[in-house]
């Protein structure tokens, strides 16, 4: 197991390098840069553009250098000094802008993951064991509905319902009185009272697909000979199901930890915009639109890193869970 962990950690180094290169290429890909967007914006408003100032800025941010020099500047500052550069848009260091939002995003992702598991596990097991029962059909119906409904639509419906029928505007993760307050018990409780709405909305599709996957896997496993063997031993049925087939069917549950983060980031952007969450999504979109390259690049890099770490963790969890993986790779 230790060998496996070390090998996986070593694999992460080239992966991270590749990700940083791709990230940098992506943020360089659109024609022009932040300054050209900025100039375009100024001139469209009829403001005079001071070309000398622009040239000075270009020089200062190294925008005239060849791309590999720019990449080296960028990545070496991050790795060696933890300096993600400045945001053009906010004229502040990127690091000041992102950590709060990243914290919220990660908290939301983890909460969504746990809630998805907690909902999907009993329903998936029930649906498979009681296949073709009324309960199974009901959950299947709800599950398909959840799979087919886009998150942002769900968010819109939710906003509309709570505004129309309860006269409440949903938005944000905090009540206004706590929004700018320092962290304290009250703020945590306030967060908890708000967080379930986005968690349910964002987690809906993932939960539904987890139910489908668990049900399908478990149905396969329930017919395997080892289940008959366990029955032939004289074990009670529920104990057999939980110990053998459920265990085999749980692999996908663990793998989700790895791919959940990127899918959450993608799915969450629109939801966050609709219900006004201060997560990474809206800021990332804004940064991309205005070609705020250091801000966008830092987000993409950090989220990609988190995804790689998430994949690593889920791989290690799987190896711990399934001895076949452990022995094949150990």
């Amino acid at each position: 197991m230790a060998k496996l962990v070390i090998r996986r950690l070593i694999y992460m180094v080239p992966t991270m390098f590749a990700i940083s290169v791709v990230t940098f290429l992506i943020i360089q890909l659109p024609p022009g840069d932040f300054l050209s967007t900025y100039i375009a914006e100024l001139s469209s408003r009829g403001d005079a553009v001071d070309t000398r100032l622009v040239e000075a800025l270009r020089e200062r941010y190294g925008l005239n250098d060849p791309i590999y020099v720019q990449y080296y500047q960028w990545i070496s500052h991050i790795v060696l000094q933890g300096d993600f550069g400045d945001s053009f848009l906010y004229r502040r260091p990127v690091a000041d802008l992102i950590w709060n939002r990243l914290g919220l995003t990660i908290a939301l992702a983890v909460a969504t993951l746990l809630v998805s598991w907690a909902i999907a596990f009993p329903i998936g097991v029930y649906s498979a064991v009681k296949q073709h029962s009324a309960g199974d059909y009901a959950f299947t119906f709800i599950g398909f509905l959840g799979l087919a409904t886009p998150n942002f639509l769900l968010a819109l419906i939710f906003v509309w319902i709570s505004f129309n029928y309860f006269g409440q505007s949903v938005g944000g993760l905090f009540s206004p009185e706590f929004a700018d307050a320092a962290w304290n018990l009250g703020k945590v409780l306030d967060l908890l009272s708000h967080v379930w709405v986005p968690v349910l909305i964002i987690g809906m599709a993932g939960t539904a697909s987890l139910i489908r996957v668990l049900r399908a896997n478990l149905l396969d496993e329930l017919r395997k000979p080892y289940v008959t063997t366990a029955r032939a031993k004289g074990l009670p049925e529920w104990r057999i199901i939980l110990k053998y087939p459920v265990r085999m069917a749980l692999g996908p549950f663990i793998s989700t930890a790895g791919w959940l983060l990127p899918s959450l980031i993608g799915g969450e952007v629109l939801v966050s915009i609709v219900i006004g969450l201060d997560t990474t999504g809206p800021l990332l979109v804004e940064a991309l639109i205005s070609q705020d390259m250091y801000l966008a690049g830092s987000f993409i890099l950090i989220l990609a890193t988190l995804t790689v770490i998430g994949t690593l963790l889920s791989d290690l969890l799987l190896a711990w869970w399934d001895p076949r993986i452990r022995y094949a790779e150990g």
């Binding site: 000979p225 063997t229 366990a230 032939a232 031993k233 004289g234 009670p236 265990r247």
Partner: peptide, 27 residues
């Protein structure tokens, strides 16, 4: 699935199967 037949399974009458590869749990 009842208690009576379970007290017979494995105790009075045991069974082995055709597929030794899949009749045991691999994990």
């Amino acid at each position: 699935g009842g208690k009576e037949i379970r007290s017979v399974r494995g105790k009075d009458i045991a069974m082995i199967f055709q597929e030794p590869m899949t009749s045991l749990s691999l994990v």
